[in-house]
């Protein structure tokens, strides 16, 4: 049961990274390229916009039902970045919808644009900061320590912010590839092709910074990753895919690169998981929170499993149907 629940959780995170990530990334691209990106972005994400964000809700529900101490610990130590993420989700979500379903475009849309763009970037960065804090190992439960050590230090540092920027770049990269796969004009294909390449170069640079900082700050994740063969293999695989994706962009194989990028993101996440799992939160005192010591009782897992089986059986065919209706038929 535990394995199945973890599998569904991983799938939820994978799809959230891909689809939710494409959506965050769309906002980030708009931030840097301006109004000309709005139309292709709508075409790409508007119909599946709501659905993309359901993955996060699914993941959170699995965590607080199946692994309550993890949820509680994150809520306390990472309260501030999580609150920023939430405000970002609320603001960008409403700005996007308000603007999209508005009756006509006028001057007021400038406000929606900027709220959507800035909060997209902010949310993506702080999602990464939160992830970084789970790896960083400075989360502290000592009630006698200072406010700074309890609520700020676990996430407010160079390492966590480098992870934040890395995640934002991944999202922007996914978004540019996703938009490329839509039926857009040749001029736009060139534009988003260049963007995708720039984002991938930036990912390599920031990724190296993340690793360097991990080394400098003795982040436990680094040594774990170095000793896990699966991590090595997965990260190598993700790197090898990069030139193939560039080639695909040049040769206009726009559907093929979508698959490659999905695979690449999957490999990066696998590489991360192989090093980090079963630990989910690295603690300062060494009492790490793992899948095993945080798991809810068997009875809870049993019913959670039933809910997830029924859920998967109804959600996946429906999503397939939605994508088929709104995506493929329009081409």
């Amino acid at each position: 049961m535990l394995e199945f629940i973890v599998l569904v959780l991983s799938i939820a995170f994978f799809f959230y990274t891909l689809l939710g990530g494409a959506d965050f990334g769309a906002g980030i691209i708009e931030l840097f390229t301006g109004n000309k990106s709005i139309r292709p972005i709508y075409k790409a994400i508007a119909p599946v916009w709501e659905v993309n964000h359901m993955w996060l809700i699914l993941a959170i529900v699995i965590i607080f039902n199946g692994f309550p101490p993890i949820f509680a610990q994150m809520s306390v130590s990472l309260h501030i970045p999580l609150f920023i993420i939430l405000m970002g989700i609320v603001l960008r979500g409403t700005a996007f919808t308000f603007r999209h379903y508005d009756t006509h475009v006028d001057g007021t849309h400038v406000y929606y644009h900027w709220i959507f763009r800035i909060s997209s970037l902010l949310t993506a960065v702080f999602l990464g900061v939160t992830l970084g804090a789970m790896m960083y190992g400075r989360i502290d439960n000592d009630p006698n320590s200072t406010f700074y050590l309890q609520f700020i230090a676990p996430w407010f540092n160079y390492f966590c912010f480098s992870v934040g920027i890395f995640v934002a770049l991944i999202f922007a990269y996914i978004a540019s590839i996703f938009i490329l796969g839509e039926a857009i004009e040749a001029k736009q294909v060139r534009f988003y092709g260049i963007l995708a390449k720039r984002f991938s170069i930036s990912m390599i640079i920031v990724g190296s910074v993340v690793l360097t900082l991990a080394y400098l700050y003795e982040v436990p994740f680094l040594s774990l990753a170095l000793s896990a063969p699966i991590s090595w293999a997965a990260f190598t695989g993700a790197t090898i895919l990069l030139p193939l994706i560039w080639r695909g962009i040049n040769k206009n194989q726009l559907q093929l690169i979508r698959v490659f990028v999905a695979l690449q993101i999957g490999l990066i996440m696998l590489g991360w998981a192989a090093a980090q799992i079963p630990i989910l939160i690295h603690m300062k005192d060494g009492n790490h929170l793992t899948l095993y010591n945080s798991v809810a009782p068997d009875a809870t897992l049993y019913y959670l499993t039933i809910a997830l089986v029924v859920g998967s059986l109804s959600i996946f065919p429906s999503i397939y149907y939605l994508f088929r209706v709104v995506k493929f038929k329009s081409e």
């Binding site: 119909p47 699914l58 607080f64 809870t300 809910a307 029924v310 859920g311 149907y321 209706v325």
Partner: peptide, 24 residues
């Protein structure tokens, strides 16, 4: 979380289906 969370896990599904159906 482990005791009263079950309806939320079903709610997640219901909400998901709602979003998909709304998209259609």
């Amino acid at each position: 979380g482990g005791i009263f969370g079950m309806p939320f896990s079903w709610e997640g599904t219901a909400f998901f289906i709602e979003a998909i159906a709304l998209g259609v």
